[in-house]
Design a protein around this nucleic acid. Sequence first.
DNA 1: CGAACGAACGAACGATCGTTCGGATGCGTG
DNA 2: CACGCATCCGAACGATCGTTCGTTCGTTCG
Lengths: 216, 216
Amino acid sequence: MTLNRRLAAKAARLLPEHKPPGSPGLILEAALKLFAERGYAAASVREIAAASGLKPATIYGHYPSKEHILAELCRVGHEEQNRSVRAAVLNSGADPRDQIVAYVRAHVGMHTSFPMLAVVANAELHVLSAELGAATFSLREQSERLLGEIIQRGLDRGVFHVPNAWLAVAAIGGMGLRVAYWYSPEYRLEPHEVADVYAEYALRILAVKTDPSAGL
Amino acid sequence: MTLNRRLAAKAARLLPEHKPPGSPGLILEAALKLFAERGYAAASVREIAAASGLKPATIYGHYPSKEHILAELCRVGHEEQNRSVRAAVLNSGADPRDQIVAYVRAHVGMHTSFPMLAVVANAELHVLSAELGAATFSLREQSERLLGEIIQRGLDRGVFHVPNAWLAVAAIGGMGLRVAYWYSPEYRLEPHEVADVYAEYALRILAVKTDPSAGL
DNA sequence: CGAACGAACGAACGATCGTTCGGATGCGTG
DNA sequence: CACGCATCCGAACGATCGTTCGTTCGTTCG
């Protein structure tokens, strides 16, 4: 179970709208897999090239540097996460409880659907220079603030009960983040099962009074 | 807030009982800081040597390889974590609820007290060969199994209510893990505050019926 | 047909990597 | 003083790193 691998997922996955056509897309996909499995610093441009069916020199015809490839992956990952949770919350009505459920479901869903993208976008982000990471930092802050605002609204309305809104953000965000490392499609658990259970956990953390007849 | 750093902590911390005297201790401490901030692959032996006040060649008089230094840090980190949670649980009586509180408090306490050690021991573990990582893997599995057994006992006794014990382990463990990345001693939050709140969150995740008069 | 162009490549650049080796230095013990 | 022993270091090893340069190739378009 606890194997000597960084994450359980074995295949890189990139949405068509985030994967440019042709060689740039192949490069991005190969880099995603290598960055996720070995880490940015331990993955060489030569390995990325080989995995893309190209030669190292060709990479630089499509990306100015190795760091730019990482920056693109981080941006894409955070963009997908931000887009996902924002859409989910907007579709969930005005009740903070529904919004939390929508947010956590989308957040966890992102980490089960794109585990490699999530791992790279979060664990390798610190490598980026302030300039190359600016877009990603902004997206990350947006998502975090959205969760914070939902929780604050729930507190103001008296439907949530936690001593510290920020600690709830950290706890709910943190447990979702970790999913990307252990989730594998060949698991006994379907993505929606994980998402549903984690959404329930989030409600419990926030001490929402639930219908006892709903059972476990 | 969301700065371009891997973790918020700024100083490496190593318990005296885990820090060998003399140069080996200095090397271990310097490597801890560099591995935590930049990652194992991005930190060079020359940097570790400079930070220890030594020359690169001297490192190899105390450790056979760079990987052995990481292996030692991972082992120390997981040993401290394992020792801490085991002691806490043993001191907490037979009630699974008390055991969960003790476990989570110790677990979170480890991540606030030794954030760099926790980050390195968890995020860089995958680098180690099966041989060099064996001791660490064993400790990690022990800790995880202990948490799983506590939760299972609580389920059997009917004091916990979750649909899936493993998902609860993942959620509770995951939210604690993440603390090491954002916690900083210069925060407004004391370590015990974080630990107490997270212990409460764990109880809520497990749907323990608490005294409503206890407030938030 | 021939000019223009983007994509891909072979080869090499300087830099840095982990690591090794032989020797210098200091110190406690005979 | 002479010795053994551990510590430390200067210098260098081969390997690999990210990146660049000049060129070749196939396609497109006038």
